[in-house]
Amino acid sequence: MRRAVCPGSFDPITNGHLDIIGRASKLYDVVHVAVMINKSKQGLFTIDERMRLIERVTAEFGNVVVEAFHGLLVDFCKERDIPAIVKGLRAVSDFDYELQMAQMNHGLSGVETLFVPTNPTYSFLSSSLVKEVAAYGGDVSHLVPAEVLGELTERLAAR
Rank of each mutant, 00 (worst) to 15 (best):
Q103C: 12
F115Q: 08
H106P: 12
V92F: 15
M101Q: 15
K87P: 01
L73P: 00
G110H: 09
V92N: 11
S127F: 07
S93T: 11
L89Y: 07
P120C: 01
D96K: 13
K78C: 02
M104C: 01
G107R: 02
T121D: 15
L89W: 11
C77S: 10
T113Y: 12
L73M: 10
I85E: 04
F76E: 03
D94T: 07
P117K: 07
P120A: 07
G88N: 01
L89Q: 09
M104Q: 11
L108V: 12
A102G: 12
V86A: 10
R80Y: 04
V111W: 09
E98N: 14
N105M: 05
F124M: 05
T118I: 13
M101K: 01
F124K: 08
H106F: 14
V111D: 08
R90P: 14
F69T: 08
D96N: 13
Q100W: 00
A102S: 13
V111K: 04
S126F: 04
T121W: 09
H106N: 14
E79M: 00
S127E: 06
F95A: 05
K87M: 04
F76D: 01
V116S: 11
K131D: 07
P117G: 03
Y97A: 14
L73T: 08
A91E: 04
Y97M: 12
V74Q: 01
K78A: 06
D94K: 03
A91T: 15
V130H: 09
F69I: 07
H70V: 02
Q103W: 10
L72A: 03
E79L: 01
E79C: 08
